[in-house]
Nucleic acid binder design. Structure first.
Length: 633
RNA sequence: GGGCCCGUAGCUCAGCAAGGACAGAGCGGCGGCCUUCUAAGCCGCAGGUCGGGGGUUCAAGUCCCCCCGGGCCCGCCA
């Protein structure tokens, strides 16, 4: 039994039309996805059959469509009651009763759109923030997209593993560890990741000031670093005792750690900051199945294993002790590597002829430094090998900012050279979040943290709820859930490939087009059901015939294909927008269609079932984007 | 210079993958609706050369080409 009546209708309709078209000698091939609702009557679905076949059949669109109509076997089309031609379209009227009943049944039992078990495991790696400062709004976007996408995959039937890569083996963590080592005797204050974030900022400042004194180039102006140092000192005066950090001591610390020394020093900072992350992420309902430590990948030999595999492939090179992969040669000689860069053999040849290969493909992909320490790219390649050889997942989605797309291509190229299909590693790319005034800078301690956003949203909800006679415990629970809904929706309702400007008014919006708006519609539906006592099993779906009622069912029926789109396009925002649209339509229904006090018993029973169905699909959508359901608000 | 992404109403964004039957929401603005299932709601009004130009097509916001504007990347950083 399918969990997608509309999908059944569309595929059987398209199949039948295609088979008739073939009988008529046409090659015209329609996809089920082209079947669209007829806006003006909302109970027909159509295909532009006439236009497509007119030329092939040598007829005008209207007659071509009629020709198909005459041969159509409606018994082969799910839920079909009648077919007709309208201005070149071949339309199908659905048998409302059965169609509505099936949709309402599946929606209210919350099975609508659930995929069959696939029996294979997909991995989603997300968040993976350097453990050096608190999670900010950009990391939040990553975590929310990753978490939501995981939920979507699971809903569609895959086994999903959510992994977090703890990047503890890079210079950033070494800077923090170096700073912390100068402040050994200090006890953390406040939320631990925030405290370490301050140490990180002042350590960077002190390192950059040290560099400036010696005339070593830096990304930012020295004034900015002095400002950073002063700013942190004002917040936490004792941190100035970090003193001066030299580049040598930072690098030598990193070298020791990668060799398996100074372990406690690194693990203390990384684990502390991670602990802070997990408290924030847990608050947001985001959980992981496994944490993979970058350092473990090195110590347990995955990095060496990856290098051996690349060595065997023949594309590994060494220069002054640094290890790299020869991407130019790989892209010239290997089809799979070319695919990673989206280039054909002919295109490469042409580009080479014009002498522009360097513009399109980086010459080398470095995995380690001359001093023998691993670069992030190196451990990332090691991690990829671990994912497929160590764990054995079918495919892995890396939720990583778009600014790393070139690095991701490098990793995928290495995966190909290690003998795996590079398409099994998918870069789920998203654009960054900007602050309106200043650019965010983790190193300088300039960011809006997820914690403060959640707290601020919560304060605003409490303000709204105060004086409504809700007891403290309930008020606290509702405020937290509504705040989460607001923040999550704000970050997830935008297409991942759009840059987001962070605005407080966006995360604090509780009106239409917000998490709370969806949650509100959900509680309204729930409240009707609660007051009604029970939803009668016996009802007549034909009672649902107003424009809004029919539109609601239509929208509910589209839920499965929306979820599939969100999966295929890797866009959880599609589900978020869907939930908002459904909530909006339900609110219009709510205003104009009394349910419990409906004029007739039959009407009441049918509407109750519809409300139940809305509640189910709204609830499922909320689950998929991680917006908490609540009983009351 | 090259690669990727974005450009739709004053602002924030859907619609583009898969061309089709009237360009849509929200916010902001203005004006209405709480003795009836929660007003975090609903209704109405105003607001558009879908960045520009070519092309393909019976049909282009959607596909192709060129151009303009913006973001990110092109490190032995991550």
């Amino acid at each position: 039994m399918s969990k997608d009546p509309l999908g059944d209708l569309k595929s059987s309709f398209a199949n039948e039309v295609n088979s008739v078209a073939r009988e008529l000698g046409s090659s015209g091939h329609f996809s089920p996805l082209q079947v669209s609702i007829v806006q003006r009557d909302r109970s027909s679905y159509g295909l532009p059959v006439g236009f497509k076949l007119a030329k092939e059949l040598g007829k005008d669109p209207e007659s071509a469509a009629r020709e198909v109509l005459n041969r159509l076997d409606l018994r082969k089309v799910a839920y079909a009651s009648e077919a007709y031609v309208d201005r070149g379209y071949l339309n199908l009227r659905v048998e409302r009763g059965r169609f509505f009943r099936d949709i309402i049944r599946l929606a209210s039992s919350e099975e609508l759109g659930i995929g069959e078990r696939k029996g294979s495991t997909l991995m989603v790696e997300h968040t993976s923030v350097n453990p050096v400062h608190p999670l900010h709004v950009g990391s939040g976007r990553n975590a929310l997209i990753g978490d939501s996408f995981s939920r979507i995959l699971r809903f569609l039937g895959w086994d999903v593993r959510r992994h977090y890569l703890v990047n503890d083996c890079n210079l950033q963590v070494a800077i923090l560890a170096a700073g912390r080592s100068k402040l050994r005797d200090l006890r953390p204050k406040g939320k631990i990741d925030h405290w370490f974030g301050l140490i990180y900022a002042i350590s960077n400042a002190s390192l950059e000031i040290w560099k400036a004194k010696r005339g070593i180039a830096s990304d930012s102006k020295i004034e900015d670093w002095i400002e950073t140092f002063e700013r942190v000192r004002r917040v936490e005066p004792e941190l100035e005792r970090v003193g001066e950090l030299s580049e040598e001591e930072v690098i030598s610390l990193l070298r020791s750690y990668q060799k398996g020394e100074a372990v406690e020093m690194f693990r203390e900072v990384a684990e502390s900051v991670l602990e802070g992350f997990l408290s924030t992420l847990g608050r947001m309902g985001i959980h992981y199945d496994q944490f993979d430590w970058e350092s473990d990948l090195i110590w347990k030999g995955w990095a060496e294993r990856a290098v051996r595999r690349l060595e065997d492939s023949g594309y590994l090179g060494r220069e002054e002790g640094a290890i790299y992969v020869d991407l130019w040669r790989a892209v010239r000689e290997r089809e799979d590597v070319r695919r990673v860069f989206g280039l054909s053999e002919e295109e490469i040849a042409k580009i080479e002829e014009e002498g522009r290969l360097g513009e399109v493909v980086p010459r080398r992909f470095y995995l380690s430094r001359s001093d023998g320490t691993w670069l992030y790219t190196g451990t990332d390649v090691a991690y990829s090998l671990y994912k497929f050889e160590g764990i054995g997942v079918e495919a892995c989605y890396n939720v990583i900012a778009s600014e790393q797309s070139l690095e991701q291509r490098g990793v995928r190229a290495c995966l190909a050279l290690m003998g795996y299909d590079p398409d099994r590693l998918v870069h789920l790319s998203y654009e960054m979040v900007n602050l309106v005034g200043a650019a965010m800078s983790g190193r300088r301690g300039i960011y809006v943290t997820l914690d403060e956003i959640l707290d601020e949203a919560r304060r605003k909800v409490e303000e709204i709820l105060r004086g409504r006679g809700i007891d403290d415990e309930e008020l606290s629970e509702i405020s937290e859930k509504v705040a989460l809904g607001a923040v999550k929706y704000a970050l997830i309702s935008v297409s991942p490939n759009k840059v987001v400007q962070f605005r407080w008014e966006r995360v604090l919006n509780f009106e239409e087009n917000s998490g709370p708006f969806i949650q509100y519609a959900y509680t309204r539906a729930l409240s009707i059901i609660r007051k009604a006592g029970e939803v009668p099993k016996d009802y007549d779906p034909e009672e649902l015939r107003s424009e809004i009622e029919v539109s609601l069912i239509q929208m509910i029926s589209e839920f499965p294909e929306r979820v599939r789109s969100a999966y295929q396009l890797m866009r959880p925002d599609i589900v978020a927008i869907y939930a908002n649209d459904l909530a909006s339509l339900f609110n219009k229904f709510y205003e104009t269609h009394p349910v419990i006090n409906a004029a007739r018993r039959e009407e009441r029973d049918a509407r109750l079932n519809l409300v139940w169905a809305v509640k189910g699909v709204l609830g499922l959508s909320m689950d998929l984007i991680g917006i908490p359901r609540l009983e009351k608000m």
